[in-house]
Structures are given as C-alpha cells and as structure tokens.
Design a protein around this nucleic acid. Structure first.
Lengths: 205, 205
DNA sequence: CTAAATTTTGTACCTTTTGTAACCATAGAG
DNA sequence: CTCTATGGTTACAAAAGGTACAAAATTTAG
C-alpha cells in the first residue's frame, strides 16, 4: 500500500507525545488529536496504514502503540551515524543529547581541517575526511549528517554516496544531486527564515 | 489569489540559484529547472503567482528577477531577530554567517543561565530572559529563533508571543501551541532522523 | 525588410496526492 | 440487552503538481 509521505513525520509526532504520557494505559484518537493538533480522523488513518492497533470502544494501548511506532519508524534498533563537518554546527549537533537518546549514535566525525583532525570532540576522534570512503565501507554505516560549508557540500555528498551511504541529513544550503535510491533531507536555515519573512511581510496586506 | 505554501521555499531556492549565477543576463525556466531540480512548468507557475516577470521567447532577466524575488520573500529589507538560548545550538546559530548575509540580524540574545548572562557572544551581550518582554516591546522585533531545551520551550514561546513576536523558528522538539496569527516553523532533528530511519528500514522490503 | 520558424512564457485543464467527513461495526458499561 | 464510545473504512473535497497549448517575443530565411 502507498503511504502518504506526510504521515511519517506525524507518526514521529504521535510517538513523541506518547513518550511524554505518564500514568496512562489507553489513549483515544480524540486525545491524541488534542495533544498533537492533527485531526482525530487523521490520527486513525495514519495508524491504520500500518495495522490495526486500536480496539473499538476503548482506544489504543499506550505501551503497545509505542512499540509499534518504534518498529514503524525503524528506531527499535540503533543506527550508527557519520557526521561530516566539525565546525560550529557540527559541534552543536554532536553535543545534542537527543540523538543518542533516540538510538542515533554518532560514531564517526570527519573534517578536512588539519587543526581538528586527531582531536577529540565529545569523546569522539575527528578523522580526516580522506578516510571517509574506507571507514564507511568497513563499518557499513548508511546514515550521515552533513554540516559542512556550502562550497564543500556537493563534493562531500558525492563521496558519501560512493561510500555506500543511503540516507543523508543535509544542513548545507544546496539541493544536492544524488541518484534515485539515495534519500536526502535538507534543512536549510535561510530558507526557513525566508518563509517567516514572507509571512511577516504578507501579514499586514 | 491563494498561493500554494510549497511555492515559498521553492522561491527561496530559485533566489539562491540566481545569486550563484555569474555572467548571465537572461535565464529561462528550462535552465532554472535544471539548476533547481524543479520542473520548468513548476518554475513558471511559481513565478506567475506573483506577477509577469518573464518575456516569451527570451526568458527572465536575472537582475530583475532577483529584485522581484527579494521583494516577494521580504528580504529586500533587514529583519532584526531575537535568539533565545545561548547553549550549543544557539551559539552555533549565532556564529552562522548566513544569517547576516541574508539580512537577518541577530540583535538580541537571551538566556536564563546566570553564568552566561552579561557575557558577550559573537559580540552580542547575552541578556537575562526576564528582560525579554520589555526588550521586544521597546524595539519592535517580530522574529525570534528558539533554541532552548524541550522543557523550557513552550514557556519561552508563550512569553515571546506576549512580547509581540509574530514569527518563530523553533528548534525544540515540541509542537508549540500558539494563537492563529502567529507563524511557527519547527525544525525537529529527531523527526528528520526518524524519517531517514523509516526510509532505511523500508528500503530492503 | 518581411515572413516564417523557433523559442519561451503564462494559463487553462487534467491527474495525483493529501486531508476531511460521514458511516459502520465492535467492544465495553450499565 | 441496550446504549455509548471508539476504531477502521469508504466516499468526498481540497490542494498541489503535471500537461498542453495559445500568445508573444526572438531568430532565421529569403
């Protein structure tokens, strides 16, 4: 069955909300609706794409649903992540505790700056970016976070793809060209700010 | 006219591409298509929502289009921005040069950490978050970036709204509740990673 | 210089995707 | 047993993207 792509971030959201629940065994789509801002029908539909998790008349078992959503999102197991770029943003990402808590372990850090290579950052050795190809092939990492300057991004991403990486979270303000079977998500701060700027400007009109 | 919301980030993308062009007076939707990955019809349609900028038979004048897109996005003028949270992520954002270059000036930095308050970060004084209300009222800032931990986020955002902020870029992994007239864009790293994780897991099936 | 051919925009129409609302069946309460 | 609450399903509506073509500008040919 074809699953609408907007459903996936919503599943993440439901999962986040479930995690924050205390002393609650059962939850209804109505309650989930109020906690997430999505319509109750949307909640039921999103969940129904993946199976029949609820019981008519009562609702969803919170523990069961948490387990199911973890399976759906693929976070029932841990993922090893490579981080490219140990500058300001890269360091901030490295320090962000949310990753490890969610099962994303930044296992390798690469940079091209001689001053950084060999040093430890958050207990992880910064490696020369030239080792990239070898390292990912050896260990079979298939998830990478790219936090390098715009000029270097396409080149780094090409190298990552050659190394067998299949999914990339890209913070550089470009839309990289990759082959069909690679998934790239772009987080572009300038674009987001421009969306807000657009909103602010239109607001008065 | 109703403008599809996905058009706005694409307009940003077109603008970014135009900036990178050298020695080019005229550009066609076809060329923009190749440079952005959007279809040529999509490009024309997006631009046509805002006016008739092109000339049949030749294309779009690059300089004119740049100016028009800046107007559309509201980045023809500068915006003053308040940054809340001077931790790892906040500091990285503060150091990011892209903001100032695009006309987004981080003018105020707030934090609740006594150790940070009063110190300078990137030449900007870190203020006590308690001053928030007063400061924004006085200066009329209406754009804020929230880079505080999850627990503090909703409270900070409530305070921002009270202070007259109209648009918020939120990095905390919550979906904050705000009134209708406030625009919030959420950047949630965990959700993005979970989307990638979902993709990786499904890939083999 | 004129007219035909070519290029390219802007838009009307169609298709696909996504979201909303209504309906039905079932579990549980009283 | 009856009634209410609730999930899953189906039908409908809205949003977004893709296709195709007329109109306009430019280029080419004669």
């Amino acid at each position: 069955m074809k699953i609408p792509s907007p459903s996936i971030p919503r599943i993440s959201l439901y999962y986040r909300v479930l995690l924050s629940l205390k002393d609650k065994d059962i939850i209804s789509s109505q309650e989930l609706s109020e906690l997430t801002g999505c319509s109750a029908a949307q909640v039921r539909k999103d969940l129904a794409y993946f199976g029949q998790f609820g019981r008519p008349g009562s609702g969803y078992n919170v523990e069961v649903l948490k387990t199911e959503l973890k399976n759906i999102l693929g976070i029932d197991k841990d993922w090893d992540v490579a981080l490219i770029g140990a500058g300001n943003l890269g360091s901030a990402l490295l320090a962000y505790k949310g990753f490890r808590g969610q099962g994303f372990n930044i296992k390798y850090v690469f940079d091209n700056d001689r001053k950084k290579i060999g040093k430890l950052k958050q207990g992880i050795k910064v490696r020369d970016i030239l080792e990239l190809k070898k390292a990912t092939k050896q260990i079979g990492i298939n998830l990478a976070v790219v936090a390098v300057p715009q000029e270097a991004a396409q080149e780094v991403i090409d190298e990552l793809v050659l190394s067998g990486i299949k999914a990339i979270l890209n913070f550089a303000p470009i839309r990289p060209r990759v082959s069909e079977d690679i998934k790239v998500l772009n987080i572009d701060l300038s674009t987001e700010l421009e969306r807000l700027s657009y909103f602010l400007q239109r607001r008065k009109v």
